[in-house]
C-alpha cells in the first residue's frame, strides 16, 4: 500500500479533481480517478467534479471502452467505498450535450462550479 510517512504535513488541504474529458478513447478519466484514489488512500479523499465532456463518464450502463482499456464505470461505482461522494456534475455541460439527470448513474449531484473551486485549496484538472 501507499506509505503514510507524509501524513503529518498533510494537514487539511482539500483537493478538487476536475474531469474534463470523455470516458472512452483516451485514458484521461482513468488516470484522473487514479490520482483521486491515491489522495483518498493518504487520508484526504478529494472532491470530484465532472465538467465539459467529462459528464459523459457519468452516463449509466457503460461498457468497457475501445483500445483494450478497462473503462471507468466500475471505478466510478467504487469511489464511495473510498469516501469520494457524491459525484458532482456541471448542469450546463449536461444540457449542452443533450443529456438529462435521469440518464446518470446513482450518486450524482449538481454542483455550483465556482463555489466548489473556491472552497478547495488545490485544483487538479484531467
Amino acid at each position: 500500500m501507499y506509505d503514510r510517512q507524509g501524513s503529518d504535513i498533510m494537514n487539511s488541504r482539500s483537493i478538487l479533481v476536475i474531469v474534463r474529458h470523455p470516458p472512452h478513447g483516451t485514458s484521461w478519466v482513468r488516470e484522473g480517478l487514479e490520482a483521486a484514489l491515491v489522495g483518498a488512500a493518504l487520508g484526504q479523499p478529494p472532491t470530484i467534479l465532472f465538467s465539459g465532456d467529462g459528464v459523459l463518464a457519468l452516463l449509466a450502463h457503460q461498457q468497457r471502452g475501445a483500445l483494450g482499456q478497462k473503462g471507468s464505470a466500475a471505478m466510478l461505482e467504487g469511489l464511495s467505498l473510498y469516501d469520494i461522494e457524491p459525484l458532482w456534475y456541471d448542469q450546463r455541460s449536461l444540457e449542452t450535450r443533450g443529456m438529462e439527470v435521469s440518464q446518470l448513474m446513482p450518486g450524482c449531484q449538481q454542483a455550483c462550479v465556482a463555489d466548489l473551486i473556491a472552497r478547495h485549496d488545490v485544483v487538479m484538472s484531467f
Binding site: 501507499y2 490520482a35 491515491v38 493518504l42
Partner: peptide
C-alpha cells in the same frame, strides 16, 4: 515515483498548477 508524490507536492507547496 508514485502518485503519492503528486499528492505530497499538492499538500506541501504553496500552489499547484495543471
Amino acid at each position: 515515483t508514485g502518485l503519492g508524490q503528486l499528492m505530497q507536492a499538492a499538500f506541501q507547496h504553496d500552489r499547484l498548477i495543471t
